[in-house]
């Protein structure tokens, strides 16, 4: 069978068209929505990543309700410490403005452990410019208190020098004249 030139051209063009159309259709079916808007990835993934709900709030979100603690925490040396590090995440505690759970409060030896996470002199990489460190139990001996004392028996955990400063004011006691 001999085909004319025109018929052959037509067959080639039609098959090209079918292939292109099929390819485009296949691409459309296989590629997810919003693929290629910014580049070879799903642009909607950015919005999805932005929409993930947060779990940590900020100190300001805690202070909205806990005004008494805020008053102490904001004035002391520990003002840069996040509430949520010691107490747990905001979203475990509040949802849509309502309390949904109680966050733990550290007690006794837990407090000492927590304090020494930062304030331990044994770890040498702690510059005096950044943090005041103590060696335990030498610090207790130096201060003439029982070696079983926990940190919070002298230091308020939210404002560590609160009681120390007050004691100094009341007794006119100074470090030098001890």
């Amino acid at each position: 069978m001999k085909l004319s030139y025109r018929l052959r051209l037509l067959i080639v063009l039609i098959s090209l068209g079918v292939l292109t159309g099929g390819g485009l259709l296949l691409k459309h079916l296989l590629l997810p929505d919003s693929f290629g808007v910014y580049g070879p990835y799903r642009a909607n993934a950015i919005a999805e990543a932005a929409l993930v709900p947060i779990r940590h709030g900020t100190n300001a979100s805690c202070f909205k309700c806990h005004a008494y603690e805020a008053g102490i925490h904001k004035t002391g040396r520990h003002q840069t410490i996040s509430c949520e590090f010691c107490h747990g995440t905001y979203m475990d505690h509040v949802e849509n403005g309502r309390k949904i759970g109680t966050l733990p409060v550290k007690r006794e030896k837990q407090i000492t452990t927590l304090c020494l996470r930062c304030h331990n002199t044994e770890i040498k990489a702690r510059s005096e410019l950044v943090i005041k460190t103590v060696a335990m139990p030498n610090h207790l001996a130096d201060q003439n208190v029982k070696l079983t004392h926990n940190c919070n028996q002298c230091h308020h955990v939210h404002a560590p020098l609160k009681y120390i400063i007050r004691a100094k004011q009341m007794t006119r006691w100074t470090e030098a004249g001890r």
Binding site: A50, I54, H56, T80, S82, C118, V130, I131
Partner: peptide, 19 residues
């Protein structure tokens, strides 16, 4: 990223006590 888009600092920056 979800915090930054809400105008909040990353969680690790938020809790870092020494900056």
């Amino acid at each position: 990223y979800h915090r930054v888009r809400k105008g909040l600092l990353p969680a690790c920056v938020e809790v870092c006590p020494t900056g």
